[in-house]
Amino acid sequence: MLFADAPFLDRFARAAACGFDAVEFWWPASDSLAGVEDAVRDAGVEVALLNFDAGDMPAGDRGLLNDPARRQEFRDNVPVALELARRIGCTRLNALVGVEVPDLGRAEQLELARENVAWAADQAAAIGADVLIEAINTIENGPYLLSRTDAAADFARSVGRANVRLLYDVYHMQRMEGNLAATIAEHLPDIAHIQIADSPGRGEPGTGEIDFGFLLARIEELGYDGWVGLEYRPSHGSTEESLDWLPLEGRGAARADGRP
């Protein structure tokens, strides 16, 4: 979502130039996977998170796991995504479960999604990777199957795989349920990755209603040691201009040499 004015493969270097030493991205459906690998290596960044193929997202798809007609499409993507993850050193892959399929029971869809996640998680375990489950808001995304933190956590536990964990998206959960700090504290042992954007406009922190000074301090105080990904749309200008809220030293993991 950031650096969207540039071709996808150019964004890795843009992120590195801004001081970031890690990136995350959706499935690069229209780009060469070898090109992605080269871009990651050339930029010198870590890949903190990669999404499995979630379908045609501009057209409204939000995952393939719950649709019997697209089961094979997801399963064909899993080994390809895991091979890319292995080659670029990514150990967390996000699996969007999907928007409700008309004329198919919700319980049946959740069971199919559960089977698909378990199947993917077993393969991911072979490369030491986690499969993440994300709750997203239904206001903008239609009847997505998992729209609240408790539902996503219950689903992840029901899969019965130790490497199935949660992706907590601050923006989506502010839209759906609020109570961000307490919810993160409650589910912290299951949270493997956090994403942020302000609400309700999905812009950078400081453009909406969330007190990120408090929230980020609380996340650190709780002992969360994973990445916090920026998944927002710059409210004006370029991505670089939207980063005024985040000092350079806050854009990367601490390095042994003391550089940000």
Rank of each mutant, 00 (worst) to 15 (best):
A29G: 14
A16I: 01
P7W: 03
D42M: 13
L65S: 11
P68C: 03
A16R: 13
A13D: 14
A29Y: 14
G55E: 01
A4D: 14
A13M: 08
L50N: 15
F20E: 00
D21Q: 10
G60Y: 00
G19Y: 07
P68R: 00
D31C: 08
A6K: 15
A54F: 02
D21H: 02
R11W: 08
W27E: 09
E73V: 11
L2K: 01
D61R: 05
M57A: 02
N66Q: 10
A59T: 01
V45P: 00
M57K: 07
C18E: 14
A54T: 13
A69I: 03
P58Q: 02
A22W: 00
V45K: 01
A29T: 13
L2V: 13
D53R: 04
R71W: 11
A39D: 04
R11K: 11
A54R: 08
A22S: 06
M57R: 14
F3G: 10
V36I: 10
D5C: 13
C18G: 07
D61A: 05
V23G: 04
N51P: 06
E46P: 00
W26Q: 06
L33W: 12
P58N: 13
F8W: 06
L2T: 12
S32F: 08
A34K: 15
G44S: 05
A69H: 15
G55A: 06
A6S: 13
V36R: 15
E73T: 09
P79E: 04
P79D: 00
F12Y: 01
P79K: 12
G44E: 01
M57C: 15
W26I: 08
R62F: 04
R75Y: 04
R75D: 15
A6Y: 12
A13T: 13
F12A: 08
N51T: 10
F8E: 11
A15F: 07
D5R: 06
V40L: 05
D76V: 15
F52D: 07
E24Y: 10
F25V: 11
G35A: 07
D10W: 05
A29I: 09
V45E: 02
P58Y: 12
A15C: 12
R71V: 11
F12C: 09
